[in-house]
Design a protein around this nucleic acid. Sequence first.
DNA 1: TTGTAAGCGTTATCAC
DNA 2: GTGATAACGCTTACAA
Lengths: 338, 338
Amino acid sequence: MAARVTITDIARQAGVSPSTVSRALSGHLSISEPTRARIARIARDLNYRVDERARNFRMGRSRTVGLLFPYLGDSRRQLSDPFYLEIAGAISDALDARGYDMLMARVPADSDDWPGRYVTDKRVDGLLLVDRALDDPGIEALQKLDTPFVVWGHRLPLQDYVTVGGDSVAGAAAIVRHLAGLGRRRIGFIGGFAGMVETITRQMGYSIGLAECGIPLDESLILYSDFSPGGGREAMAALLEREPGLDGVFLCSDYMAVAAMEVIRASGRRVPEDVAVAGYDDVPLAAWCNPRLTTIHQSVHRGGALMVDLLFAMLDGQPAAPVTLPVHLVVRDSCGEN
Amino acid sequence: MAARVTITDIARQAGVSPSTVSRALSGHLSISEPTRARIARIARDLNYRVDERARNFRMGRSRTVGLLFPYLGDSRRQLSDPFYLEIAGAISDALDARGYDMLMARVPADSDDWPGRYVTDKRVDGLLLVDRALDDPGIEALQKLDTPFVVWGHRLPLQDYVTVGGDSVAGAAAIVRHLAGLGRRRIGFIGGFAGMVETITRQMGYSIGLAECGIPLDESLILYSDFSPGGGREAMAALLEREPGLDGVFLCSDYMAVAAMEVIRASGRRVPEDVAVAGYDDVPLAAWCNPRLTTIHQSVHRGGALMVDLLFAMLDGQPAAPVTLPVHLVVRDSCGEN
DNA sequence: TTGTAAGCGTTATCAC
DNA sequence: GTGATAACGCTTACAA
């Protein structure tokens, strides 16, 4: 493969200096039209393309944004929840539209070395995080750096960084009210990773919803998992064992909820007649599983695009504030009567 | 945030030259132990980190691999199939283990400009593609460049690049034999995007399976979609309309199959009694939907890791050959009796 | 309007 | 064992 064509090759051919080529190619108005056109033609003929590596290096940026998925637990379990890919897709599109690349990786939420690896090492110009631990050392370390970042998730009381996320507390409370309104009284809660914010805020919403409906909180109905169907299955089985009289359950993701429904049926119970099931996220699948899942809808696509908007505002030096996106209950069949 | 600490700052403090620092930090054996230790200490004290951008630039590489998802059709529809995230996760882990970053993006399968954007622009050292069009201009353009790449998918007869993938023809044929063995005769096929290789090879397997079982091929039972649940739903509805006597259907992804089952039920038919349904991929969800899905298992995690292994072999200048991974039928409940 | 020269931070080559 | 020096490909003052 022909050796790399550089700006110098073009300069030679055009009989001008490399700087003129650089200026011509990046559309400087100071370059005369004939020169510009001539250079453009030669560049095309030579099949020239800028070396983004060199340009970014020179310009002190990377034109890359990192999309990081913090996780807890020692298992390096695969993420396979459609929610993650959906938000990644939305973000990727928004970044693409601005000519930025998207780096994707999972990072341990209980470590603080990844900000150095991505930010200080200059791999990225900014970071996007999907969820976080309540006490997240990585985010703390990240705040000491001067690189903008936006976190997906519920806004926390004292937080001094920017988040975009649905109102998880309200969403979870709405689920519980719905369940209680249908006469359910023994309502379980199955979270994602125990220390992650989205699990915690939804659990708060669950407690609030229970209180609003005058149902006493029973700690033994609360279990944690890992957002995966396998994890949902195990947690659901454990919950059923622990509380045979369960008549409703709220799981922190649709993917877990679908698996849970199967476990419930396998135990000889019916969904929703015996146990009502609700999920979270309103992933496309939720409308097409059996029974169709009652869940909380989050505008993932809008949220992803918004995260990118805010990040770029910050890269521009503009201020940015957390955004709470509305969520709403989508009533389908998995909780019965609607 | 203190201005960037460079190798020169360390050199100054240590009273040596920048080159000595560079060598000390990268563990050159030519550096005396005391010097090395002293430099290491200063680097730590100063919180030094290499500028990967600069290093990669200097060394003529990017330490980044692009993971590209070619797609067809004008809709920029979100990918949300768990299969994609699973393979992305497997690849990300394998890359991480080697200290490489993963760039992720979707690219139009009917265009040939993305190889330039990623390869010639020097954003990546190598490329990983998940699926491809049968006649893929991007891949053709890519082959003219000297950058290694590996494609996920079924190996094609005359292909002169490296693929890793399950045997889609065999997998689809196995599905059809299973269905026919259960007495089904009017078996439909719902593909992903019409021009994509995985759709085509599975359709070939479908035809072969039919022939093996002495069932005449009926073109009107073949429909295409886009791998999404929404697409699966529409295609399934259309197929049912077109062929009310349908007694079996094979869909090219589990995610579509789950949606299809719901459509079938909504039409007043039972799964599997009236219509047997089979998917493809054996995504975690397949074991936990209702009814549990009979499908083809692909070793996605192993496949992803293998793609990375092969890519690195090629980066090392070693030869690499296509690999066909075994697939197997996983019989669950969605086709009835097992 | 265009050219010259410096420099981004690092590593590699060649001396000493 | 260590230090100059050059170079990777590009952009950008500063000059002309």
